[in-house]
Amino acid sequence: MQYLLLIYSNEAELLARSPVDLKAMSAEYMDFTKGIIQGGQFKAGDRLKPTSTASTVRVRNGKLAITDGPFAETREQLGGYYLIEAKNLDEATAIAARIPGANHGSIEVRPTWPVEM
């Protein structure tokens, strides 16, 4: 099965971190990513630019509306994702637990729902 691991954390807190801290965090992410590439579980993954860069699009009655900012204001923001291959939910949650962000933010684990065509 494939699972999308959505990494949520407090963006303001992350942006306030010192360059040394951020470098250390990047290194942790690099190690983790290499690990799941080698383990054959990695399908895709990236970090996201801050929510200040987000735009939200809605079309209502054929009318396009573009607004500044993310869809919902929440305490933790989506900051990155991985798409992984895992045998089952236990394997997926074990991988999610190894994501560095799990130690301060939270990881939402969602199975993908492939469309049969």
């Binding site: 939910l89 236990d90 199975p111």
Partner: peptide, 14 residues
């Protein structure tokens, strides 16, 4: 079914 919760006794470390 949909989230892939395994029908297994957990592995020893769990």
């Amino acid at each position: 079914r949909d989230a892939g919760i395994p029908y297994e006794t957990p592995e020893p470390h769990l």
